[in-house]
Amino acid sequence: RIYPLMRVTLTTSDGASVTVSRQLTKHSGFIEKAITDMAVDDNAVPLSAVAVDVDDATLKLVIEWLTEHRDDALPYPEKTDEERRADDIPAWDQAFVQKWDTKEDQQQTLYAVITAADKLDIKGLLDMTCKTLANKINGKTVEEMREILQLECDFTEEELAEIRKENAWCEN
């Protein structure tokens, strides 16, 4: 049973402390497990804070997302064998990610949130960020993909030609 008024204090990797409602943290498998491991009474505020290996700026974004999704159903449905879809990101989530476009390094923010979602085991946030990145890549040329993914081509010309030949073969 979850007591929504219960507060949980999270300490970040850069030493900041944030106190949030259990209603938000219930979406994090990591935090829920940490609280369970503390064996505290659910009615009480844990005496020990939960240490999360996430920096303060990223945690704030995660909490912003969790606040919007506090009423999402749990457990999060696993969709490994369902139809592939990346076009069903809720409007609020799309706007949430688009806000980062104004940041100096939007891609690094996205990667930081992805890493945090994985560490904190927040399946909904991981799914959303996955779809966001998939949408950025899908439909792009190889050059555009490299630019989005911030990767250099490390193939030799011969290797590239070989892969192109394989790809071209199967298109015939």
Binding site: I114, C130, A134, K140, T141, C153, F155
Partner: peptide, 26 residues
């Protein structure tokens, strides 16, 4: 990025884009 995420990402890629991604880097 976490392996779980990369695997999830690759599950959403159409075959055509998987073919293009082969050319991005080793």
């Amino acid at each position: 990025l976490p392996d779980l995420f990369l695997r999830k990402l690759m599950r959403t890629m159409e075959i055509d884009y998987r073919m293009r991604l082969r050319l991005v880097s080793r």
